[in-house]
Design a protein around this nucleic acid. Structure first.
Lengths: 158, 158
DNA sequence: AATGGATACTTAGCATGCTAAGTAAGTTCA
DNA sequence: TGAACTTACTTAGCATGCTAAGTATCCATT
């Protein structure tokens, strides 16, 4: 038989992960540039948006889980959002160790205002790509996330 | 007619870019864990590997371009690789501003040794995914990189 | 009730991208 | 030839992820 023909995906250079990181960085640059005039950055915007989605009143732990980042990474972001007057931290009535997070009124306005910018960038990112392509893409990304975690787990066991 | 049916890719939460970043971070964690015992990290490994591919003797500028990172980002990495004795910087005979980069013998050995680990992780990342899926995935990623750059350009003009 | 182990969070500091601004050297052109 | 750009690189410092280690509180069990 003939040799395996080279596949397009083998051309992702210098490696799949590096390529992923590259596209991510470019996307982040675009987001940061688009929302800078509002005093926002990508990480703060993401936290703000996920707080709304996760449900106001949730703990930092819960928000960190939604964001899939570690608690210490969130601590800094929360402090900044608080200083900007976009969120409030209130003591958890059931657990004196925990803090509940709430959007302020201007926090809610900010979320609404940001949504338009983010949507516009998303549209640009999807430009020229069909639903079919994007569905496969999403499917692969979802699977890769699982694969990466399995891989990490194996490495930790070893 | 009926409303548009929801597409899988719309479920990437909280947004496409955030999701990309997440998969990237998990991949990087895995790489870092796998090569830590060799004193390597993802960025140093990437630079080392790309130096071989770009061609030894290239300038920092040329390597930064291959890596698609900015010069200052590379400066730090190069200093570390030099301290580890994996690369050498020699003056460029044609341009006294520039430095040419060369792998040392142990640098070359390191590249060879790393290749196996990286390949293993790549295989894990691709687990359960077909060539067809991966080709679409690569196609989409390549397009998104272009889209992101166009988006950035527009934002800079505005 | 005391004790030992989780859990929620913070602080400190690393990894690695970026931009801004500085220096030295090359290039161009009146 | 000398002034004005441009280019190659460095330094400084921010953004944002991480882990390690510390504190306070909660819970489960003896």
């Amino acid at each position: 038989m003939s040799a395996n023909k080279p596949q397009l995906y083998e051309s992702l250079e210098p490696s799949l992960g590096v390529f992923l990181g590259r596209v991510f960085r470019h996307w982040r640059s675009a987001v940061n540039k688009a929302v800078a005039h509002l005093g926002m950055t990508e990480s703060r915007w993401t936290a703000l948006m996920l707080l709304k989605k996760t449900g106001e009143g949730c703990t930092q732990q819960a928000l960190a889980k939604s964001l899939m980042i570690e608690l210490p990474s969130l601590t800094r972001t929360i402090k900044q959002l608080q200083e900007q007057g976009l969120i409030e931290r209130r003591p958890d009535p059931n657990d004196r160790r925990a803090h509940c997070l709430w959007l302020t009124d201007s926090g809610r306005e900010m979320v609404d205002e940001l949504a338009g910018y983010i949507l516009a960038i998303r549209r640009e990112m999807y430009e020229g790509l069909s639903d079919e392509q994007l569905n496969v893409f999403a499917d692969v990304l979802l699977r890769m996330e699982v694969n990466a975690q399995n891989c990490l787990t194996k490495l930790e066991e070893a």
